[in-house]
Amino acid sequence: MTVRATEFLRRAGAPQHSLEDYAGCLPRWCTGCGDNAILAAVQKVCREEQLPPEKIVFVSGIGCSSRFPHYMGSYGFHGLHGRALPIAEGIKMRRPDLHVFVNTGDGDCCSIGAAHWVHATRYNMNMTVMMHDNNIYGLTKNQASPTSPRGTRSNTTPRGSLLEAFDPLQATLGFSNLSFVAQVPDWIPDLLFQVIHEAHKHRGFSFIRILQRCPEFQANRWEPCMQDPSSVLILTHENGVQLSPVLARAYKNHQEHDPADLVEARRIVGTSEQLPVGIIYRNPNVPCYEDMRKPDRLYTPEDVKNGLNAELDKFTIWPRD
């Protein structure tokens, strides 16, 4: 039940939010860090949707990316390493009216928080998850992460890492109850904005792997892709991202891809020689866990009090009079 009068009066009296309304503390990321681009794109999405800042919450774990909540002028929760997703799920379960965003890194998400990531995907709660993938632990000054390419020299792998890099996209396309997967580089601002915008509009667990530049410890990681636009394959679709004329001139390599096609999504991610970017998979029909767990009836404060008392009474040792 939504009353039209309320909508009208809300809009009539509501302040128009500008980019500054979504800005928090001054970012302290390194100059040239891709996180700055992600921050700008997210703030633009909030402005585009005119989200009330008091209705937004950013949740993060630990790492460079996880400083994100400090830089947003909204509610935030800077959590524990790898635990951003369960915290976000708790928030969404209790306050489904809030717009929940999660910022996590490749180490935070794919290593210590990997199990939470698998199950958060399966739970499909309505939130936007941005995995800032710079292929390195940056905050702790240069240690190899699960997504570091084989041979990466770092403080923990001085002779070069031995293992093949973990592919978060291939992994997530294998998870159950998948609802939204996208990949986007931080250095194409128009595309970054579109993907985060679409992810936010999608009702469900929207997972975005953002290829993020780290000028300090992985300075050359994405250099070839930035210098050679033909190495990037932009996936377009009427239900995905669309190319602006400027982007179409700069990036000649684009392909029509229906995000509803999971088999094709897996094929593209698994076999493409170029870097596929855009919305890879989207299924709006997967039910959200918070909807499934919604109680059938409304609990009044009295109901809650009585229920709690009944539970606590089970453990009460009544003193002898």
Partner: peptide, 12 residues
Amino acid sequence: TPLCTTCDECTK
């Protein structure tokens, strides 16, 4: 400008 990635290099 439309291609700027807001990396702060020039403004700093």
